[in-house]
């Protein structure tokens, strides 16, 4: 339903095209248009690679930050709170700039654009992942821990085989959301020169000077990408639910 509405709005927008529109810049039937289009679409690879790498890292870091948050020890819980509050307070764009321009000086290393982007996105997202995991783990009934303990499972086995499988099923919709969010936020990495979708569109606008058409293509690229990802996440959710029947 949602999708149909979006597509209808888009059709109206495009239907309203007048002669003022210069679609030739991305017309695949012409030599230049085809080259331009390929250049724009080429950014998909980096957008996806960047987002997936970042989210893979942020899920792991998020879990590692969430677990101390559930500890009985105050110091470990404090670590969790400080991490989440600090990281969550920094705007992603600021984090990207700081990691790319600042971190190499602090640590006396060189970081490429890709890894600077990955680190900044993953760091930023990990605070949210930590909160999601904490809520998911807390939603698992106390009796599950007691049952695990009553068959002598240790902490790691209890988490791995009993608590996390149940928690992850519950937080899967939230994880899907984060992935969508990540795909969109990856556009910010364009500011440090990462050749992903947004950067490529920006560069093409500078040479072709047709921002309306090029940015419209950019909107469509994100739209299609995210609709596909959303559908995949929903399918995964259904499959996990089916497992329980």
């Amino acid at each position: 339903m949602m999708r149909a509405a979006l597509l209808a709005a888009l059709a109206l927008l495009l239907g309203g095209c007048s002669a003022d529109w210069g679609w030739y810049v991305v017309d695949p039937s012409t030599q230049t248009g085809w080259t331009n289009l390929k250049f724009l679409l080429g950014g998909l690879y980096y957008t996806i690679l960047l987002s997936l790498t970042a989210i893979a890292i942020s899920v792991v870091v998020g879990l590692l930050v969430a677990l101390p948050g559930l500890s009985q020890y105050r110091a470990l819980r404090a670590f969790n709170r400080v991490y989440v509050e600090v990281v969550r307070s920094v705007p992603i764009l600021v984090l990207i700039l700081w990691v790319y321009y600042g971190l190499p000086q602090v640590m006396d290393i060189t970081i490429g654009v890709f890894w600077a982007g990955v680190i900044a996105l993953a760091l930023s997202d990990s605070a949210f992942q930590a909160e999601i995991f904490r809520a998911g783990i807390q939603s698992v009934d106390r009796g599950q821990y007691e049952a695990a303990q009553s068959v002598s499972l240790g902490y790691v086995d209890t988490m791995r085989y009993v608590i996390l499988p149940q928690a992850i099923r519950r937080i899967l919709p939230a994880l899907g959301n984060q992935l969508v969010y990540m795909l969109k936020m990856s556009s910010l990495v364009s500011v440090i020169g990462m050749q992903e979708l947004t950067r490529r569109a920006n560069e093409l606008v500078v040479t072709e000077y047709r921002p309306l058409e090029i940015y419209t293509v950019l909107v469509l690229e994100y739209l299609v990408l995210i609709l596909i990802v959303s559908a995949l996440v929903r399918r995964l959710e259904r499959r996990l639910r089916a497992d329980e029947r």
């Binding site: 009934d141 049952a147 695990a148 002598s152 085989y161 497992d243």
Partner: peptide
């Protein structure tokens, strides 16, 4: 370890595991 078994009022079975996996988890892991 494995000396004291416990049965709960609310059963507390592991809902995401089959009956068989509920039964083998402790013996295999612990």
């Amino acid at each position: 370890r494995g000396t004291v078994g416990m049965v709960f009022q609310q059963f507390n079975l592991f809902p995401h595991l089959t009956v068989l996996d509920n039964l083998t988890l402790g013996p295999m892991r612990a």
